[in-house]
Amino acid sequence: DMEPAAGDGTRRKTACVPCGYGYIASALVKLLLEKGYAVKTTLRNPDDVVKNKHLKDLQALGPLEVFRANLDEEGSFDDAVAGCDYVFFDAPPVNLHAENPEKDVIEPAVHGLLNVMRSCVRAGTVKRVVLTSSAAAVSTLPLEGEGHVLDEESWADVEFLTSGKTHAWGFPVSKVHLEKAASAFALEKGISLVTVCPGLMVGAAPAAKVHPSTLDVLSLLSGESSTETN
């Protein structure tokens, strides 16, 4: 479990939430600040007024620093992770229509995650990494009959997905590779890793821009098309 934000009163606990422009990441930043944590987050371009506005607004809640970092740039998360007790990694949105998911989605996702985790090792202070994955990493597989129970030992069927090239197969495959790469790295380096696999997320978030899956869920609730909801 996470320690109290203020610890024993001598030091405020610090959490890093890379890529703070995302839906889940921005909600995490807000929640952590409300709980009393100092928070560090990152943007590719902190000078981007649109992507930075919600983070500027959140600074009213508590100590929030915004760093410049790129997932594809090795070591660029070192400053953001330095001194942190916890790191919450929510992978950036996936292009569901990528022409080459292996090259355009899966490889960059794994590279970016390991880039952040290597920064955690160099920091030497990180007690736990919390990775947001997806239920798609567990449940995307051919099932026959009823009564199936999926648990921590269950994985999406990568061979089935890649051979059949089902719609948006790059998303579940990327989540499987992401989790397995994170687990192997954490085991090798002695990092405490927790992976969360949400099935459906709804609710308000500070992010200035919402992404397609959020709009699809809202359209089911409102009866309007996702484009109208947007």
Rank of each mutant, 00 (worst) to 15 (best):
V110H: 08
R128L: 02
R122A: 14
V105S: 01
L114H: 12
H97C: 06
L131A: 01
E102D: 15
V126A: 03
R128E: 14
L114A: 03
N100T: 00
L114S: 05
A137P: 03
A135E: 08
A137Y: 03
G124F: 07
E99R: 14
A135T: 12
V116R: 10
V116K: 10
S133Q: 07
P108K: 09
H97P: 00
K127C: 01
H111A: 14
A109Y: 02
G124N: 11
A98E: 05
V105Q: 08
S134H: 10
I106L: 05
R122G: 01
R118N: 15
E107Y: 08
P101F: 08
K127A: 03
A135N: 13
G112R: 11
A109C: 13
A137K: 12
V110G: 06
K127I: 00
S133D: 02
T132W: 12
E99M: 07
L96R: 12
G124D: 10
N100Q: 09
E102H: 13
R128S: 08
C120T: 10
V129L: 11
L131W: 09
V126K: 09
V130K: 02
S119W: 11
I106H: 07
V121K: 14
T125S: 14
V110L: 02
N100W: 01
E107S: 11
R128D: 06
L113E: 06
V116E: 01
A137G: 14
N115A: 07
N115P: 00
R118G: 14
H111S: 13
